[in-house]
């Protein structure tokens, strides 16, 4: 991973990019007749400020980078942002699976698949995973649906 200073340069550039994307879309929104007020005003301001914040972050990042290069900071000791890509993708898949399964097969099945899957991925035993997932989903359903009357997705069999 690259040091924070260089990651900041990337972050700043991304913010500028976001601002550059928001600004034209915002300016295309209408305003009230004969007035600067209207739907377009605030998003346009926000777009401009995105660019401003991005520029400041980029410059700060570049400055820190140069300082590091000049040998003031030991590059190896710089904090490096850690992106745990695998854990991100695991959560992404788990929740996506829930979004697909739950409306069709109900909360109990969807929740069970989600929790059991996540528990397995995170290195628990089969038995623990299945038991915890089963008990948890049933308790959660009982509390929400039966006790608090908060509806959750139902499958073809009513749960």
């Amino acid at each position: 991973m690259i040091p924070v200073s260089r990651a900041d340069v990337v972050l700043g550039l991304l913010a500028i990019l976001a601002g550059a994307a928001i600004l034209p879309m915002s300016l295309a929104l209408p305003s009230l007749p004969q007035s600067y007020a209207g739907p377009s005003l605030f998003p346009s301001l926000i777009g401009c400020l995105f660019i401003l914040a991005g520029v400041v972050i980029t410059i700060n990042g570049l400055r820190a980078w140069r300082a590091e290069k000049a040998g003031q900071g030991d590059e190896a000791s710089q904090p490096r942002p850690q992106f745990a890509w695998r854990r991100m993708i695991e959560v992404l898949i788990a929740v996506a699976v829930f979004i697909i399964v739950a409306p069709r097969l109900g909360f109990v099945v969807g929740g069970f698949v989600l929790v059991a899957g996540m528990l397995l991925i995170r290195g628990n035993r089969w038995t623990t995973s299945v038991a915890v997932a089963l008990i948890l989903t049933i308790i959660v359903r009982w509390i929400f649906v039966s006790l608090l009357k908060v509806p959750l997705p139902v499958g073809p069999w009513g749960w």
Binding site: V91, A94, V95, G111, L114, V115, M118, L119, R122, G123, N124, T128, V132, A133, L136, T137, V140
Partner: peptide, 10 residues
């Protein structure tokens, strides 16, 4: 490792 998946469900 057990708590976090449960929290995800909540």
């Amino acid at each position: 490792r057990i708590l976090m998946p449960c929290i995800l469900l909540f």
